[in-house]
Every structure is written in C-alpha cells, then in structure tokens.
Write a protein that binds this DNA or RNA. Structure first.
Length: 112
DNA sequence: CCCTTGACTATCT
DNA sequence: GAGATAGCCAAGG
C-alpha cells in the first residue's frame, strides 16, 4: 500500500485520541501539521489497514459525518456508545458535563 | 488538462 | 439556529 507522510501523520494523531474523547477532522489535520486538510483526513483513515479509532473523529459541530441512518452512521454511533459517549440525534457529548449542558439547553425553558 | 466529488469549515443570511 | 455559499485540497474520470 502506498503510504504518504501525510497518512502516517494522520494515523498517529487519530491513534492517539484517548478512549471516550473525540476530535474534529480539522483538529486532527492541524495536529498532524496539515492545517487545511480536514477533507483529506477521511481519505487517510480509509487507506489505513491498521485498526484506527476512526469513530472518534467527528465534524466541527460534533456531529457524525455520515448521513443519519446510513450503515456507517450506525456503526460509528455504536462504537462511540460502546466507549461510553452519548449520541443525541447524531451529536456526540464528550462527558457527563457536556451532556448535562446540552440537556440543560433543551430543558432550560423549564428553569425559569 | 478541466471538471466533479467528498467521512470538511467558516461565514453570511 | 438552519440553509446557502464559498474556500479548501487531493483523487479520479
């Protein structure tokens, strides 16, 4: 398989994402040293033959990048939930606090 | 070569 | 806050 320096950099970053955490494509690209290559991250991950935690990479708005309901979407959602993350209508919360803040926003109308 | 596509983002309405 | 628009960059037709 043809692997570029870019691919290796991306793989290293993605592989370093701790369990229960997520990063955006742009963040991964930046961390790897390729600031404008958010769209290339997915390509690099697809090309990887090693088991990469690709499911921990989300869009900037913390949503799963696949169309809701698609095969890949469900797979990624399952993997994330298996790691203890919460997925609410495609949106992923990193911690209980984030989740609470999110729910707070939803329920804030009852807060006075 | 020119044009389209995509697991993206930032900005403007 | 959701939808449209414009940058972005590499790969494939």
């Amino acid at each position: 398989m043809k692997m570029t320096e870019f691919d290796q950099a991306i793989w290293r970053v993605v592989a370093a994402i701790p369990v229960g955490c997520v990063m955006s494509y742009g963040e991964v690209a930046r961390a790897a040293g390729f600031p404008r290559h958010a769209r290339m991250v997915s390509r690099a991950m697809s090309r990887s033959d090693k088991p990469l935690p690709w499911h921990r990479v989300l869009r900037q708005d913390r949503r799963i990048a696949f169309p809701s309901g698609s095969e890949a979407f469900r797979r990624q959602k399952a993997l994330l939930q298996k790691e203890g993350l919460r997925v609410i209508s495609g949106k992923v919360c990193q911690s209980e606090q984030t989740a609470k803040a999110y729910l707070d926003k939803l329920l804030w109308q009852g807060e006075t």
